[in-house]
Each structure stands twice: as C-alpha cells, then as structure tokens.
Design a binder for these strands. Structure first.
Length: 736
DNA sequence: ACTAGTCCTG
DNA sequence: CAGGACTAGT
C-alpha cells in the first residue's frame, strides 16, 4: 500500500481520535468542571480551606460574629473536604464511608489514595468510562448519575483496573501478548501505558498480535481476573450496605440542619437571605413529621460519635419543637448553639452547604419558572409563574423531587451552580425522566410565546433550538452541555447576565412578572457573586474554564458588554430587545421592496426594537438569507429555462402565476396575506434574466460570477412604504 | 479591528 | 433560519 494511503489513513485516524478525545474531553472536562465547581463551592463554604484559596464565604452575609461561629464549625469539616475534593463524586457520603471502612478494617488501603489529584480524577473517570461503561457514559459521567455507591465502586474498580493494567504491561514486557478483551481498546491502552509508544503503525501491528495470543496467557490472566472479581464483588457488597447506612444518616442530618437552620436564620433574614423563608416553611412542615418518627430506628446504625451528635440534635430538636413553633426566639439555641455545637459542626456544615445549595437551586429554579411562565400564554398551566414549593427539597424521601429541581437548574446552571447536592449521593438515579422535566422549562421559555403576539424574548431562537433541545439536549445526562446558556442568548441580555434579561419587553403586559424577575435577579446576583466569584455577569467564565464551548456564540450574540449597558436603561421601556416572528414576517415583506437594506434603514423600520449589535446583525443576516434564497431560486429557474430550451430573455417573464413567483411568495409571504408589489415582479424578472444571460454566457464558471448580478440587483431596491415603519404595520398591512 | 456580506452547513 | 468560516471593504 502506498505510503500516501497510509498517511491519509493515519490522518483520518488522528482526526477521529481527536474527535474522540474531544468527546471525552467534553466528558472529562465536564467532570473536571464539576470538580472545580464543587471545589469552589466547598471553598466557599470553607474560607479557611487548606487547599482552596478562594476567599469567598457564603456566611459573609451573616454578621461577623455569626460568621465566625460558622467558620469555626465549618472548619471542622475541612478535613473531610481535603481528601475528597478532587474526585467529583467523592463526597460526604464517600467520606463517611471511608470512615466506616477504616472502622471496619478497610480492605482497600489504596482506596484512600485514589483520586487525590484532580488530574487523577479525570484519568480515573476516563478509565472507568473506557473500560466499564463505554456505551453508557451517563454512568460514569454524571456525578449524581449513579448513587455515590457506584462512584465509590468505580473508584475501587479503577484501582483494580490499574493494577490489572500494570500486570498486563509486565506481561507485555515479558514478550507476552494481551488478552483479546483488552485489545478492544488497544490503542487507548497503549496510549495510556506507553505514551511515547511507537508509531501508529506499530500499534496497529501490536493490535494484530493481540488478536492471537497464546491461550495459556489468556487462562492465567483470566484466572487472575476472576479472582479479583470475586474480591471486588465482596467488597462491593459491603460498600453498598455501608452506603445505604450512610444515606440514611445523611437524611437525618439534613433534617437536623433544617431545624438548626431555621432557628439560626431568623438573623440572616436581615440581609435578605434569598428565598429561604419561603422554602423553609414548607420544608418545616414536611420535616416535622418525618423527624419525629424517623430517627429512632437508625440510631443504632450510627457511629458512636455520630450517635452522640445525633442524640444531642434530637434533644435540641425536641426542645425546639416545644419551645418555638416556627422561628420565634429560640435564642438559646442560637446563642450558644454554634459554639457549643462543636461536635455537630460537621453536620451543620454539611447541612448548611446543602441548604445553601438548595436555596440557590431554588432561586435559579424560580428564575427559570418565571421565564417559562411569563411568555407562556399558551402553556401557563404547566408552570405557574412562581410555584417553587413543590420542587422544594423534601428532606425525607422526597429527594427525588429535589433532585429533579436541581437538575433542572443545571440545565442552564451547570456553569453557574455547583451542585454539591449530587455529592450527597442521592439514592435515586437521575433517570432520563428527571431530565426531561427540565426540557419544558428551557423549551417553553423559548417556544412559548412568539407565535401569538411576538413577545420580546428573543423569539428568533425558538424554532431552532426547540427541537434539538427537546429531543436530545437534556434528555440524558450524557449531554451535560457545559454551556446550555446560549439557548437563552437573548433573554439573557440583561445587564446582570442573569436569566432575567428578557423581561423588559414583556413587563409592559405583566408587571408582576417583572417584579418577580427583578427579585430573582437580585437573588441570583447574590448567588452568583458568591459562587461565580467575580464574574456574576459572565456566564462565559465558567464554561470557558471547562471548555471553550460556545464561547464564540456567546461572545458574538450577547456577550457584548457595550450592548448590555445599552440595554439596561431601556429595560422596562417599550423597546423590544429581541426580534419576534412578527419582525421576521415584516422583514420578509420588506424584502419585496428592498433586497439590500442598510442597517440604518433597518433601524428606522424596526423602531420598536432596541437595536444592538446582535439585533442589527441578525436583521442583516435575515436579509442575507432572504437574498440567498432569492438568488438560488433565480438561478434554479434560469437554468431550468435554459434546459427547457429557452434561448432569449424575452421569453422569460415573471407573472403572479408562474412557478418562480409562487416559490418566492411562499417563502416571503407564506400566508399570502400581503399583496406583492408589482415592482418586485419586475425586479425578479430582471434578476432572472441576469442569471439567464450569465449562464448562457458561461460566466458561471467563475466562482464569483454571481457578484456581478448582485451588483445589478442591489440597485433595484425601491422605497419601503412608510407604513412599514409603524410597529403595528403588520396588523395594518394585513388587515387592509 | 470591525462590519457587511457570502457561502456552506445543519 | 442560524452558525460559522471566510472575504472584502473601511
């Protein structure tokens, strides 16, 4: 085979591999991102964290004294974080598990070391994915995909896998071959094992060798494997059990926290502590019942230390139940509570984190709902404007709901909201149904309105993104696009960069939603200022770290800060910030008059639109698309005429019943409710003849032969009737 | 550097 | 119809 071919093959392979890598990187970086996000979150929670230097503190908003107290408490949790941060899935649960394991005489000493470096975590993930569940990435991807248990398992499996690998490498070195099963991913393995390994060709040969390896090797290897497998199975069983226990405990901790938190936060309220208030009340109710009957049985499963903690908490709990119905007073708890709660600090920290996260989720959720509800005249029933409650995290047994809500957030919150909650290893696997729930939100937001009256919320995006989104987008955790935000590109145009942008246009009709949005915006701002650090306004930030995904889109579409600043003063005015389908329709009708409108002209004719670069370029793009279609039709029909034997342009004319006209009319005036001006027919005819002549003259061999025609046509623009300047021109035009 | 425009793709 | 790559003009 010629070298050329093999080279081509190589490059192709390389290409493909790059693609693969790309995918995996998406995956890997996604997990890395989660890790990072989580790290950020935790560091947020642990201002004194030994590893993270982010000096953010959620407790910032509490008064100094209190924050100190909290810090003290949280500090105690640091020791936990250190080891587990790196691994995305490693969390409190796994941490607890570790403890348990040690207590029970952990069988896997190396477990602790696994994933101690962030890179390590990635490698592990990758390994896992590549080996165990290549075809079902969700399992290894989603941090909350499988219960933590599986993460845990995988951790161990990983280790096993590495060892197996090592063994294999040794075998190779001894001049032995691999087992066929390994050869499945021969290239990958080789890459991992011997990065500097020879040429691809070599590896190809290697692969071939692998195919026919001695049976002896196979047998011994398989023996080894099976032995390990049994071991692992055994461990796995144990771990599963432990995990379940821990989950129970966790749930209890959560309850405790809500109690504590409830008493504590009456202070926090002063600085507008998110929407916890609203949520709290609901939780409390549910919690009250749960917490009573619940903990007894599980007490016996706790560690001694935890038992004590639990006991104390229980006592407090009861006191609280008696002393204060909701939140009144109960100062004693608060006064000495945090300080004397040392042993419980850990729990408090955990639960605090959770609560905060929940709150955040809530906020975002709210925003989403507002979004979806506002434009949804057509689907108001699905998501009433502000019904956070039911999505609220129910402490006991209702994790599912919470999870769902949370995931919904992540649909566009991946970048924004690290979700430590996954780390709690919710028992339920986020099924695809979970995620599909998120769909309506995004989709609705996009699709909901427009058709009716063309609400301002970036209608242009809707038709497009809707289907792809709903069909693939968020249905599986596989597609945890680090940056779904572009979907809401325009709606996000608010100066805050929060998903509140689009209200301005709409609020005329629904001031309440405006308020709502503003409220959530402010909340959201708070959150983001905490969790996004200094980039509350740049959704771009996070994804960029994860992967440069969609960056250009954001940048080009709405990342323009100048535009943002332009917008803000107008928000609330009558100016629309997006182009609606009606605008599109109008543009199409205008095309009958002008094929090459200047941007200034567009501005005058779309006076109801708040122009910025995005809008302008979009409008221009529209007309560009119109032209494209127009010219394509012209060329098509010109060639057709030529094929039909037409020899003279004289034979070419465009009437209202010719095919070409119908095609054009169908495109620009689909409803046929607008009377196409005569002039357009003339222009079309001229265009057709231009094409005809050019083709006849053989000019079409020149790649840019059309440009000459364009030049001619662009001079044929006529005045657009004044009526088009009216924002209501459509009604006026079409009702005539 | 920025924009308008084209071409291609999905 | 939108995105993105690319070009040409300023």
């Amino acid at each position: 085979m010629p070298d050329h071919d093999s080279t081509a093959l190589l490059s192709r392979q390389t290409k493909r591999r790059r693609v693969d890598i790309g995918v995996k990187r998406t995956v890997g970086t996604a997990s890395a991102f989660f890790a990072k996000a989580r790290a950020t979150f935790f560091s947020t929670m642990n201002p004194q964290g030994s590893e993270q230097d982010v000096e953010y503190s959620v407790v910032q908003h509490a008064d100094g004294e209190k924050s100190n107290v909290l810090r003290k408490l949280l500090k105690r949790a640091n020791s936990y974080e250190d080891a587990m941060m790196p691994f995305p899935g490693a969390t409190i649960i796994s941490q607890l598990l570790k403890n348990n394991m040690n207590k029970n005489g952990g069988t896997e000493p190396s477990f602790q070391a696994s994933g101690l470096s962030s890179t390590g975590s990635e490698v592990h993930q990758e390994d896992i994915c590549s080996n165990s569940s290549r075809d079902s990435p969700p399992e290894c991807l989603s941090p909350f995909g499988r219960p933590t248990m599986s993460q845990f398992d995988m951790d161990r499996l990983c280790d096993e896998h590495l060892r197996a690998k090592r063994a294999r490498v040794e075998n190779i070195i001894r001049g032995m071959s691999h087992s066929p099963s390994v050869a499945l991913r021969g290239n990958e393995n080789e890459r991992e094992m011997a990065p500097q390994s020879v040429s691809p060709r070599e590896s190809y040969r290697e692969n071939k060798r692998k195919q026919k390896l001695p049976q002896q090797q196979q047998q011994s290897f398989q023996q080894l494997v099976s032995a390990r497998k049994e071991q692992k199975r055994e461990e796995r069983r144990q771990l599963k059990q432990q995990l379940e226990d821990m989950q129970k405990q966790l749930r209890q901790l959560q309850e405790k926290f809500y109690q504590i938190y409830d008493s504590t936060d009456s202070e926090n309220d002063e600085d507008g502590n998110l929407s916890e208030d609203s949520m709290r009340s609901e939780i409390l109710d549910a919690r009250a019942q749960d917490s009573v009957g619940r903990s007894d049985n599980e007490m016996c499963e706790l560690d001694p230390g935890q038992f004590i903690d639990r006991a104390r908490a229980l006592i407090r709990e009861q006191e609280m139940a008696e002393n204060k119905p909701k939140r009144e007073g109960n100062n004693k708890e608060r006064d000495h509570g945090p300080n004397s709660l040392q042993p419980e600090g850990k729990h408090l920290a955990e639960t605090l984190k959770q609560e905060l996260n929940t709150a955040m989720s809530q906020v975002v959720d709210t925003v989403v709902k507002v979004f979806s509800a506002k434009p949804s005249r057509q689907l108001p029933q699905v998501f009433p404007p502000l019904q956070i409650p039911q999505a609220r995290f129910a402490v006991n047994g209702e994790n599912h709901n919470f999870h769902t809500a949370n995931q919904r957030l992540q649909c566009f919150g991946d970048v924004i909201i690290p979700n430590p909650l996954d780390t709690f290893g919710n028992v339920q696997m986020p099924s695809s149904t979970d995620q599909t729930e998120a769909l309506p939100l995004v989709v609705r937001k996009n699709s909901s309105d427009q058709s009716a009256s063309g609400p301002p919320t970036g209608g242009h995006h809707q038709p497009l993104h809707q289907s792809p989104l709903s069909t693939t987008g968020f249905t599986t955790s596989t597609f945890r696009h680090p940056f779904p935000l572009p979907l809401m590109a325009y709606p996000f145009q608010s100066p805050l960069g929060a998903p509140s942008g689009s209200f301005s246009g709409k609020d005329r009709t629904s001031p309440e939603s405006l308020d709502l949005t503003r409220e959530t915006t402010s909340l959201r701002t708070k959150m983001s200022s905490h969790h996004l650090g200094h980039h509350p306004c740049s959704p771009v930030h996070a994804p960029s770290t994860a992967e440069g995904l969609s960056l250009s889109l954001i940048k080009s579409e709405c990342g323009d800060l100048q535009d943002m600043s332009e917008i803000s003063p107008y928000s609330g005015s009558a100016m629309q910030e997006g182009l609606s389908p009606n605008h599109l329709k109008k543009a199409k009708l205008m095309f009958f008059y002008t094929r090459y409108p200047s941007s200034n002209m567009l501005k005058t004719y779309f006076s109801d639109v708040k122009f910025n670069r995005c809008i302008t370029s979009q409008l221009i793009k529209w007309f560009s698309n119109f032209r494209e279609f127009y010219y394509i039709q012209m060329e098509k029909y010109a060639r057709q005429a030529i094929n039909d034997g037409v020899t003279s342009t004289e034979e070419l004319s465009i009437t209202r019943d010719c095919e070409l006209y119908r095609a054009l009319n169908m495109h620009y005036n689909k409803a046929n409710d607008f009377e196409v001006p005569e002039r357009f027919l003339e222009v079309a005819q001229i265009t057709l003849r231009e094409f005809f002549n050019a083709i006849i003259a053989g000019k079409d061999v020149d790649p840019s032969w059309k440009k000459a025609i364009y030049k001619v046509i662009c001079k044929l623009d006529s005045e657009v009737p004044e009526i088009f300047k009216s924002p209501n021109c459509l009604q006026e035009l079409l009702h005539e």
